[in-house]
Simulated assay, not measured.
Amino acid sequence: MCKHVQVLIIFLTCSLGYGQTSTFTNPILPSGADPFSTYYKGFYYYTHTVGDRLVLWKTKNLADFTQAEKKTIWIPPKNTMYSHSIWAPEFHVIDDKWYVYFAADDGDNLNHRMYVLENISEDPFSGEWQFKGKVAANPDRWAIDGNVFRYKNELFMIWSGWEGYKNGQQNIYIAKMKSPWEIEGNRVLISEPDYVWEKQGDLNDEDNPHVNVNEGPQYLEHDGNIFIIYSASGCWTDFYSLGLLRLKGEDILNPANWEKHSKPIFTKSQENSVYGPGHNSFFKSPDGKEDWILYHANSKPGQGCGSKRSPRMQKISWSKDGVPIFGDPVSEDTTLEIPSN
């Protein structure tokens, strides 16, 4: 066979447009904590924590960012309550408008709250991002990691927060929203650290001798079953892992209707050299047939909450009783097929 024909066949076999390959290995980027993706009209819109701004990527294939469009869509004004520590942004399309939710503070972690921007353009890379303000519940307390979703055609937010004004324990709260930038009514506590695996991470601080953590909540629905997947224990530890809440009744605002799984469902794998997997999100394949988890993790023990965390993804499956099965976080040597088209 002609050498040029062989090269062409290899290229066509291994590429799917935009230079994207049909297989990949984790991580999908060298660095990036709190990864989140929205699939909209043939493209993945991806983001992660940058810290001082909001950055958005656009790609046909989350496994290949080599030709992805990238844009800083917002830099906070200086000297505001939301100028620093911009964490865990999420881009959502709600009623044909774009919204980005993020946590930020004024340089003092005690003042972390949730905020939202709106863009009425169909294309989030064009149009104007308008600051809509703080998304505050009653009572207004420390809040991070907001996730917005629809349940029975009503809008809700879940997030991680403190009961009072002092660090010491992070809980998962839920509240109904009357608009994409306003919360209606009081917040409702649906999860707090109960088990030993949710309480790993002493800070060796006299004022904060330990921190029990539930954070990064994500809504997940499958065949009528409703779940919230959340991260537990300190992100600075290798024990950072995912837990599961399952809705057992119709009333999503009734704490008694949320049942917590007694064991973590996704945790470190020393065999695969994946440590502290957590702060995940979910997405479907372009053809809608596969469910995927997008998460960050470290490649070595003891790397903590810094820039070593990198985004990874893998397909999930479902048990006979409708519970998600994540398996083990795959190694960086494992070749995976991209989400099905």
Results as ranks from 00 to 15, higher is better:
Asp96Ile: 07
Arg53Cys: 08
Ala297Val: 12
Ser126Glu: 13
Asp328Asn: 12
Pro217Met: 03
Pro124Met: 00
Ile265Lys: 02
Thr49Cys: 08
Glu337Asp: 07
Asp108Arg: 12
Val148Ile: 15
Ile174Gly: 01
Glu221Ala: 14
Lys263Glu: 13
Lys166Cys: 05
Leu54Gln: 02
Lys97Phe: 03
Ala175Thr: 03
Lys289Trp: 10
Glu182Gly: 03
Gly51Phe: 11
Ser269Met: 11
Lys97Pro: 01
Pro139Asn: 03
Asn186Val: 00
Lys58His: 06
Met81Lys: 10
Lys41Met: 08
Glu192Phe: 11
Gly288Asn: 14
Met313Lys: 01
Val323Asn: 11
Pro180Ser: 12
Phe43Gly: 00
Arg141Ala: 03
Phe326Asn: 01
Trp74Ser: 01
His92Cys: 09
Leu203Glu: 12
Glu90Asn: 13
Cys235Met: 10
Ile316Asp: 04
Val211Ile: 12
Phe156Gly: 00
Trp162Pro: 00
Phe43Val: 01
Lys289Arg: 09
Val135Asp: 02
Leu8Trp: 07
His84Lys: 09
Lys71Tyr: 02
Glu290Trp: 10
Asp223Ile: 06
Leu155Phe: 08
Asp207Cys: 04
Ala103Gln: 05
Asn225Gly: 05
Ser231Thr: 09
Lys248Trp: 06
Leu203Ile: 11
Cys2Glu: 14
Ala88Val: 13
Val211Met: 13
Gln218Ser: 12
Lys71His: 07
Val213Gly: 04
Gln20Lys: 04
Lys58Glu: 10
Gly306Trp: 12
Asp64Lys: 04
Met157Pro: 00
Lys134Ile: 05
Gln6Ser: 14
Ile9Glu: 15
Leu8Phe: 05
Val148Pro: 10
Ser37Gly: 01
Ala63Gln: 09
